[in-house]
């Protein structure tokens, strides 16, 4: 406890100099993490924020506000004052809330401070699965309709998007979808043989693949990834994936749209610097994420593009509750 106090005090020594010079931040900033403690969003945010605090000269108190696929946290930030003292630390999910009928708000009510990194989706199979590669999997599904078990994480999650891509490119696959809480529990189930195939994010699967506990089938990137150079890319397997890639889940920090410009600028600068730090970049590459570190218009363009690709993909797969058109989400250019 003593250490905590001493630490808090010494961390605040930085605060003193900053707060005297400028108005923002004059008190702690709350960082609302959409996902639970120990998840990848949580880890990434808790890793990047300490350095941003130093630059900012303030404290960011991070809290996990979970539930409703992140919508609870998002709504909490949306209903807080637009003064720059409440940050939303989130992932890609909110961009699908509207079409999936999970909420009325998404990132269009927010300004992106920084889109930190993008993940790479990968298709992995259990080590005892009766196929060793992507083509083998498709053939096996065809021969044994309704027998192969895919892990999923509910509508709008990464597995549902990747599966929608596979269905769009290769035609409808007759498989069973077994729902899990997240890719962590699903990959555990994959190793125990409860499911056969799981579309997951590379970082979550990489250690299992290295140990031979699961077989990589396909990476969803235009080019082979450094950590798994021998795993074929989706585009090499089927040209059709070209129109969707690169695609992947991402992590970003947001504030409400009407936040004062001074706060937005300071936060943007702080997180930009924090995301350039070597330890953070190393963490990202270890976990198989592609660092983006984009903000402003560039980040907004990234969000729009992501939303239009994914929302229309889900719409075409018949998984949406409302058409993206209803929310003015443009159809992606062919």
């Amino acid at each position: 406890m003593k250490h905590l106090i001493i630490g808090t005090v010494s961390a605040l020594a930085f605060t003193a100099t900053g707060a005297l010079a400028q108005d923002y931040p004059s008190k702690e900033i709350a960082g609302i993490i959409q996902w639970g403690a120990g998840g990848s969003t949580d880890t990434v945010m808790r890793a990047v924020t300490p350095h941003a605090e130093d630059v900012l000269g303030g404290t960011v108190v991070m809290q996990n506000v979970t539930g409703g696929v992140g919508a609870i946290g998002l709504n909490q930030v949306a209903s807080a004052a637009a003064d720059g003292y409440t940050l939303l630390m989130g992932a890609e999910n909110p961009l699908l809330y509207k079409v999936m009928g999970l909420g009325q708000k998404d990132y269009s009510d927010f300004v992106p401070i920084n889109i930190l990194a993008r993940g790479t989706p990968i298709l992995v199979a259990g080590k005892d699965a009766p196929f060793d590669d992507y083509a083998g999997m498709l053939a096996y599904i065809k021969e044994n309709p309704g027998e192969v078990r895919f892990g999923s994480t509910g509508p709008g999650g990464l597995p549902s998007v990747v599966t929608a891509m596979i269905n769009a490119v290769e035609g409808e696959q007759d498989v069973i979808f077994v729902p899990y809480d997240g890719d962590g529990p699903a990959l555990t189930a994959l190793q125990g043989g409860a499911i056969d195939v799981m579309p997951a994010v590379l970082g979550a699967a990489i250690e299992g693949i290295k140990a031979g506990a699961m077989k990589p089938l396909l990476v969803f990137e235009p080019e082979a990834v450094a950590t798994l150079p021998d795993t074929p890319t989706a585009i090499s397997a089927n040209e059709g994936y070209n129109q969707y890639l690169p695609w992947g889940p991402f992590f970003g920090i947001f504030v409400r749209t009407d936040t004062p410009a001074e706060a937005v600028e300071k936060l943007t600068a702080a997180y930009k610097e924090a995301a350039e730090q070597a330890p953070f970049l190393e963490l990202m590459s270890n976990r198989g994420f592609t660092p983006l570190n984009i903000s402003g218009d560039e980040a907004q363009a990234f969000l729009d593009d992501w939303q239009s690709t994914t929302a229309w993909l889900m719409q075409d797969a018949g998984l949406t509750k409302a058409s993206p058109e209803d929310f003015g989400i443009a159809k992606p250019a062919e």
């Binding site: 605040l12 020594a13 930085f14 605060t15 003193a16 005297l20 004059s26 008190k27 702690e28």
Partner: peptide, 10 residues
């Protein structure tokens, strides 16, 4: 709280 922390930090 920030005021006290600033004082302490200062």
């Amino acid at each position: 709280l920030q005021f006290f922390r600033n004082m302490l930090g200062g």
